[in-house]
Amino acid sequence: MRWSGADVQIEKTDFVAIPSQDAERAAAFYGETLGLRSDEHSQYEFWAGDICLGIWEPAKMGMEFQPSKNGHVAFHVPDVAAAREELEGKGVTFNGETFDTGVCHMALFEDPDGNDLMLHNRYAPYSGDSAA
C-alpha cells in the first residue's frame, strides 16, 4: 500500500506527552506507583516497553492545563485484576468495573492529574480481524 496524503514521512513515535500540574508528583506516580523504568537522562521521562512517556507542565510553556479524558495509554500487564488490586491498595482511582471485551481485559484509571490511563491484557490470539 502506497501512502498518500501529505507524505510527511512519520518514522516512529518519539514519546507520548503527559500533561501535569505537578511534575514531581507525576514522576513519583509513573516511576514508583506504576514502576515504570525511568529514563537515564531525564527524571520526568518513563518507559513502558518501547514507548517513552514524557511528563510536562503546560503552564510553564504558557499553555492551559487540562487533564486528558481521552487518549488512554494502555499499559500491558500480565494480570489486569491483580494489577488493579495492587494499585487500588495504593490509592489509585479506577473508573468503573474491569471490562471483558471478549478478547481482552481493560481497567480504566487516572494518574494524579486526572489523565486517563488503562491496564490492558489481550488474552485472545491475534489471528483474524479482532480488535486490539
Binding site: G49, V73, P78
Partner: peptide, 13 residues
C-alpha cells in the same frame, strides 16, 4: 509492584 511489560496502544476517541 505491578509489572507493566509494554505499551499496547494509545486509545484515541
Amino acid at each position: 509492584m505491578i509489572d507493566v511489560e509494554r505499551t499496547d496502544f494509545v486509545s484515541v476517541i
